[in-house]
Design a protein around this nucleic acid. Sequence first.
DNA 1: ATTACAGTTGGATAGTTGTCAAACAATCAG
DNA 2: CTGATTGTTTGACAACTATCCAACTGTAAT
Lengths: 105, 105
Amino acid sequence: MRLLPHPAKEDIQLTEVLRALADPVRLEIVVRLATLGEMTCTAAGDHLGVHKSTASHHYRSLREAGVIVSKQEGRLKYISLRRGDLDERFPGLLDSVLSASHAPA
Amino acid sequence: MRLLPHPAKEDIQLTEVLRALADPVRLEIVVRLATLGEMTCTAAGDHLGVHKSTASHHYRSLREAGVIVSKQEGRLKYISLRRGDLDERFPGLLDSVLSASHAPA
DNA sequence: ATTACAGTTGGATAGTTGTCAAACAATCAG
DNA sequence: CTGATTGTTTGACAACTATCCAACTGTAAT
C-alpha cells in the first residue's frame, strides 16, 4: 500500500477546495464518493464521459486540494472523501455543497 | 435606479457559485459584503490591492453567478449579497463558506 | 516471459481567467 | 459648459485549465 502526497488537514485552503468543487466533473466525482464511499479510480470515472487521463487529472486536483485521499492497493487505487478532515477544517461546508448538488436544476 | 442582468433565483447554478467564491479576491469581497452589508463598488474594492477595472470584472463574475446584486443610484452603484436567494436555493452553503473563511490559516 | 489491467504522465490544443492600462460613459458639482 | 467622480469596457498579455491521445509504469494473471 502506497500513499501519494496529500496536504495536511490544517493546510487545506478554502479557495482551493472551492475551486476543486467548482468543476462539474469533479463535483460529480465527489457526489459519487459521498454516496457510494471508497471506490477505485475506474469505478469513479466510469460514467463521467471523459477520457481516463482526464479523470486522472481531476483526481489529482481533488487530492491536492485536500478533498479526496487515495491509497494504492496492488494494481488498484482507491479514492475516498476526506470527510473527517474537511468537517473539522470547514464545518458544514461539504454537507451544504452535497446537499446543494441535489437541488433542482 | 437601474438594474443590471442577474440570474433568477432558480437559475443560480451551484458550480458557478462555487467558481465565483473560489477566487481569493472575490471571496474577500463577499466576506466584506457579508460583514458590512451593502456598499459601493469603490468601498468594496478599496483594500483589495487590484486595479479598479479588475475589481469591476470580479463584480461582474459575482453578479452573473448570482452571488451579488447591484443597483445603480445616481453615479454610485451599490452591491450587496443575495443572501436570501442563496439561502433558499442552497441552504447553508453561504453560511458555511463565510464561517470557513474565518478558519485559521 | 507475455499479456492484460489500472492508472499516470507528457504533449498538444483550444478555451478561459486574472490582471493592468487606457479609453469611455454617466452622473453630479461649480 | 467644465471638471471631478464612479464605474464599465476594450485590448493586450501571461497564466492557467480541461480535454484528448499516445506513451509509459507498475502490478497481477496465464
